[in-house]
């Protein structure tokens, strides 16, 4: 290795040692701040979500949520629907899509792929699904660079998309099997 590389490595290492904990604390605080914003939005729309999903969720049931994979990081809040899955409210940061690096993102999650199949099969006329996998139905609003301070408004719009999709589909309860009683019994 030449001296320039060694110097660069040395400087990076020294800065890292000096900065690492402070950076880690800043990241922790950032995650908390995002989660707080997601909680604010989710709390505001909880009555409508309860109506659409046939639930009796309260703000107290919103849990922190943080997940990452090679492509995306998700920071936010989630609320559990026992026996089914839950609803997630988050900021999605993407490494994969340079044209869409930030999203205000809401998704419906099912623990098993044989739950609410009818809902997963719907295309969504008013509110098209922006992300679909075996377990998740996602509704995202791309967050432009200059609109990052308005994240809560964008997340609110993503919730509106989710609600429109569920409502135009006739409500969540309609798609659940007889043995799933949301909020009380786990599926056997």
């Amino acid at each position: 290795m030449n001296n320039e590389v060694l110097d660069g490595e040395r400087e990076f290492f020294v800065t890292g040692v000096r900065t690492y904990l402070e950076a880690d604390d800043a990241m922790t605080e950032f995650r908390r701040l995002v989660q707080h914003k997601c909680r604010t939005v989710a709390s505001r729309r909880l009555d409508e979500l309860n109506q659409a999903c046939g639930m009796h969720w309260t703000v107290k049931e919103l849990d922190d949520y943080f997940e990452k994979n090679d492509k995306n990081h998700y920071l936010g809040k989630r609320i559990e629907a026992k026996g089914f899955g839950g609803v997630y409210f988050c900021l999605r940061l993407s490494r994969e899509d340079a044209s869409r690096p930030f999203d205000a993102f809401v998704y419906l999650y099912r623990i098993r792929k044989d739950l609410a199949n009818g809902l997963w099969d719907r295309p969504g006329a008013i509110a098209p699904v922006t992300y679909k996998s075996g377990h998740s139905l996602g509704f995202g609003r791309p967050l432009p660079e200059d609109k990052i301070p308005d994240f809560e408004d964008y997340l609110d719009q993503a919730v509106t998309l989710l609600l429109a999709f569920i409502n135009e589909s006739g409500g969540l309860q309609k798609y659940l099997a007889q043995n799933v009683k949301l909020g009380t019994d786990a599926i056997k």
Binding site: F12, A23, E29
Partner: peptide, 12 residues
């Protein structure tokens, strides 16, 4: 580079 980190730490 630690530039991004230092930016974040400054905001924090």
């Amino acid at each position: 580079s630690w530039d991004s980190v230092q930016l974040l730490v400054g905001s924090a």
